[in-house]
């Protein structure tokens, strides 16, 4: 759904096909997502917005392979992952998705370097190469000299930079950010958004779930959810120049 009106031959790396996610709350069925279809293509910068209860969090969990749809298909890199078992889903998370969380979610007892290596640890890829990569990415996010620091010795902005570097360690198909700037002051927020812009410019695919319109406006497109359904998909570039939703 994020394709431009003109034909787009960029590879589809994540796709929802009529995805439903229903929960049982006592005897009631909560339809958190109700037939959502959408695509994320290589190089996209997509924001997902919506009010509380619109299905944002459910969509984030499904996109991140932390949850499975009740029905419908979720394809990551062309592979249907909607019915995979727990181990296989863990593998998909570890290899294909880079998570960025609102509260950074670094592991407090580990150093920056060790935090960066965690995703590769579970793929048995920790070694001199992972160290070199971690050093490179730490420099990339401006924390080259802080590899031996622990998270609590860093500011919020620095911690989020480490988290972004960590999300890039496994060369994921896309970065999945959950309110990535929600815990930051406005200056730091701008820094982090600028960093995401840079990554996007380098070709990194980014999906950001947010309720902050300013954040969403940095993305190319915004997918609005309402009551578990796609309300509209706005091309922000067109919107800024007077264009509209699809």
């Amino acid at each position: 759904m994020t394709q431009s009106p003109m034909s787009d031959d960029r590879k589809v790396i994540a796709e929802f096909v009529d995805v439903h996610r229903h929960y049982m709350m006592g005897t009631n069925v909560v339809r958190a997502l109700n037939g959502v279809s959408m695509q994320v293509r290589q190089g996209d910068y997509l924001a997902i917005m919506g009010r509380s209860g619109s299905g944002k969090s459910t969509m984030l969990n499904l996109l991140g392979c932390l949850d499975r749809p009740t029905s419908g298909q979720y394809l990551v890199g062309g592979r249907d992952v909607s019915q995979l078992d727990d181990d296989a889903l863990s593998d998909v998370r570890g290899r294909e998705i880079g998570f960025i969380f609102q509260s950074f979610n670094l592991i407090p007892q580990l150093t920056v370097l060790e935090n960066l290596e965690v995703p590769l640890f579970y793929q048995n890829r920790v070694g001199p190469e992972s160290r070199a990569k971690a050093e490179h990415l730490a420099r990339r996010v401006g924390l080259g000299g802080r590899l031996d620091h622990r998270p609590l010795e860093l500011s919020g902005g620095q911690q989020q930079r480490v988290a972004i570097a960590r999300a890039l360690m496994n060369d994921p198909l896309f970065l999945l950010a959950d309110e990535a700037t929600g815990n930051l002051d406005s200056n730091t927020e701008l820094e982090i958004l600028a960093l995401l812009d840079e990554l996007r410019a380098e070709g990194v695919t980014i999906v950001i779930v947010t309720h902050n319109e300013n954040v969403a406006l940095r993305a190319d497109k915004t997918l609005w959810l309402k009551d578990g359904e796609v309300e509209q998909l706005v091309d922000n570039r067109l919107a800024q120049t007077g264009g509209g939703a699809s």
Binding site: R93, N105, I107, Y122
Partner: peptide, 16 residues
């Protein structure tokens, strides 16, 4: 618990 969630999100399987 949160650390467990983070590790699981970063690819840790149950056995890990």
């Amino acid at each position: 618990t949160r650390e467990i969630g983070i590790r699981r999100a970063l690819g840790a399987k149950r056995k890990h």
